[in-house]
C-alpha cells in the first residue's frame, strides 16, 4: 500500500479527528463488557492513532499494518501495543481464541485491489483468507468492527458474503446514510453468540449538521471529557505529561525536564510570552521592513522550543495564526 500515507494521515488534524471519532464509534459498536480488561486486535493500526485511543481507554492491544513507515511512526508515538508487519490478505498466524475483539479503521477497502495476477492476490481469495484466519483468532463469543470506504454496493455484497462463509454473523451498519460527507459504513461481525442472540446495532441517523441531536450516542461518551467551556479536555494535559516524565525517569532517560508549576499549556504560554517579548524587542530595534525576516526566525525559535516541551503537536500553525492575527 502507498508509502506516501504517513505524512498525509498523521499530519492532517481534521483527518485525525475523523479517525479518532470513528475509533470511538467502532469501540462502541464492539460493545465490550465495561470495567473488564480486553485484548484487542487493531487491523491496519497504521501510525497508532487508534492505538493511542485504545491505550487511553485502557485496552491491551496488538496491531498489524503492511506499511513499515507507518509502524515507525507508531513506534515514535510510544504506543503500548505490540506491532506486527503483516499483509492481512495473507491471513493471520495468531493462535485460536487469542483476541477478545478486533477493530479496523479505513482498511478493508485495500483488500479489494488485486496487485498481481497471481491467484492468491485476487480480492476474493485475499478476503476469504483474511476473514477465515481472523475468525479463528477471535474468542467465542466476540465481535469485530470494521469501518471502511466501499465504492459500490457490489463491494459490500462481496465482503459480507465472504465474511459469512468464514463463519461470521452480523452485517453492515451505516451512520448518517443521508449525508454525503458524514456517511460512515461499519461492518459489524460476530463470532458465535448462540443463534442470533446478538442483534445488529442501529446506525446513527440524521444530517451531519445536527451535531447535538444526531450524535447522541457519541455524545454520551464525550460528555465526561468536556470541560466547563464546552471544549474537549486535551488528552495530553498536565497529568499526562507528568505521567510520561515519571515514566521516562523510571526508564533512566536523561534530560527529562523538572516538574514545575508551569507544565503543559502553561509552559507553552510562558515560553510564548518570553519569545513574544523578544520579538517585540527585536522589531522595535529594527526597521519595519526587516521585521518579517526576524519574525520568521522567531517563529522557528518558538516552534523549536515548543517542540521540545511537547514533541507531539506541531506548533507552527498555532504560531502563524497568533502572529498574523494578533500582532
Amino acid at each position: 500500500m502507498a508509502t506516501s500515507r504517513p505524512k498525509k494521515y498523521t499530519k492532517n488534524t481534521r483527518n485525525q479527528q475523523i479517525q479518532a471519532d470513528m475509533t470511538y464509534r467502532a469501540l462502541e459498536l464492539l460493545n465490550l463488557p465495561p470495567d473488564e480488561p480486553a485484548f484487542l486486535l487493531d487491523i491496519g493500526c497504521g501510525s497508532g492513532l487508534s492505538g493511542e485511543i485504545l491505550d487511553e481507554e485502557g485496552y491491551i492491544w496488538a496491531g498489524v499494518d503492511i506499511a513499515p513507515s507507518m509502524l515507525e511512526v507508531a513506534l515514535e508515538r510510544e504506543v503500548e501495543g505490540d506491532l506486527f508487519l503483516q499483509d492481512i490478505g495473507q491471513g493471520f498466524g495468531f493462535r485460536p481464541g487469542s483476541f477478545d475483539g478486533a477493530i479496523s479503521i479505513s482498511v478493508l477497502q485495500w483488500l479489494l485491489n488485486a496487485e498481481t495476477s497471481h491467484p492468491t492476490s485476487s480480492p476474493p481469495h485475499r478476503l476469504s483468507r483474511f476473514f477465515t484466519t481472523l475468525h479463528s483468532s477471535l474468542r467465542n463469543p466476540s465481535r469485530a468492527v470494521f469501518q471502511f470506504y466501499p465504492s459500490s454496493d457490489d463491494q459490500i455484497q462481496l465482503i459480507t458474503s465472504i465474511a459469512q462463509k468464514a463463519g461470521f454473523g452480523g452485517g453492515i451498519v451505516v451512520d448518517y446514510p443521508n449525508s454525503k460527507k458524514a456517511k460512515k459504513v461499519f461492518l459489524c461481525l460476530y463470532v458465535g453468540g448462540g443463534g442470533g442472540a446478538q442483534q445488529l446495532p442501529e446506525g446513527l441517523d440524521g444530517e451531519e449538521a445536527v451535531e447535538d441531536g444526531g450524535k447522541a450516542r457519541f455524545e454520551r461518551r464525550r460528555e465526561r471529557e468536556k470541560t466547563k467551556n464546552g471544549k474537549r479536555k486535551s488528552i495530553k494535559d498536565k497529568d499526562w505529561i507528568l505521567k510520561k516524565k515519571e515514566l521516562y525517569r523510571k526508564r533512566g532517560k536523561e534530560g527529562v525536564p523538572n516538574d514545575s508549576k508551569f507544565t503543559g499549556p502553561q509552559a507553552e504560554a510562558s515560553v510564548l510570552i518570553y519569545f513574544m517579548d523578544l520579538f517585540l524587542f527585536n522589531s522595535s530595534i529594527l526597521h519595519s521592513e526587516e521585521v518579517p525576516a526576524t519574525g520568521d526566525c522567531v517563529f522557528r525559535l518558538i516552534a523549536d522550543e515548543m517542540a521540545l516541551q511537547r514533541s507531539h503537536a506541531d506548533p507552527l500553525p498555532v504560531l502563524h495564526f497568533f502572529c498574523y492575527n494578533v500582532l
Binding site: L83, Q86, D87, T116, T120
Partner: peptide, 15 residues
Amino acid sequence: SNGIPNMLLAEHEIG
C-alpha cells in the same frame, strides 16, 4: 527488527 516482527509471506507460501 526494531521490535516489529515481519510476518509477510512469499507468494508461494500464501495459503
